[in-house]
């Protein structure tokens, strides 16, 4: 007999891996640069979600913000703050880098007249 709780936990983790796989497929297999950027954001978001999931406590995890509980209850129930801190910086840095990629794609379109990477490859040289 399969425990339904274990099934749901496993499904959440595997669905996140599947979403990351979809994003990776889009980055690798889709030829259009805009579609590659969209897939890249999906991939990055999913990896961030997996990192946050690593720090979650079940059942009854509370946010790591101290609001006046007894200390033992706070330390015993709050989720891990370290992945959240890393993901927080990762999101902002990822946004800056993705916007830089958008700018580079725009400049590529101005120079080559297309964003299809197969055509850009043919136009080279």
């Amino acid at each position: 007999m399969i425990d339904i709780e274990v099934f749901i936990k496993t499904f959440i983790v595997l669905a996140l891996f599947g979403t990351a796989g979809v994003g990776l497929y889009g980055v690798v297999a889709k030829p259009h640069a805009t579609k590659k950027i969209i897939s890249l954001t999906i991939l990055g978001d999913t990896v961030n979600a997996l990192a946050i999931l690593l720090g979650y406590r079940y059942p009854g995890g509370i946010p790591p913000v101290y609001t006046g509980q007894p200390p033992n209850e706070f330390v015993g129930r709050a989720v891990d703050p370290l992945p959240q801190a890393l993901v927080l910086t990762a999101i902002v840095i990822g946004m800056a880098v993705n916007l830089l990629i958008i700018y580079i794609a725009l400049q590529t379109y101005r120079l080559y007249g297309t964003l299809d990477t197969r055509l850009i490859k043919k136009l080279r040289g």
């Binding site: 805009t34 950027i37 969209i38 954001t41 978001d45 961030n48 946050i52 999931l53 979650y56 406590r57 995890g61 509370i62 946010p63 790591p64 913000v65 709050a78 989720v79 959240q84 993901v87 927080l88 999101i91 902002v92 946004m95 993705n98 916007l99 958008i102």
Partner: peptide, 23 residues
């Protein structure tokens, strides 16, 4: 739901506001 209100505060404007606007 995962107990990360800080991430929600930075994630909602970035991925629902700024990414779609730039794209």
């Amino acid at each position: 739901l995962l107990g990360a209100p800080d991430i929600v505060l930075v994630y909602v404007p970035v991925t629902v506001g700024i990414y779609p606007a730039a794209l």
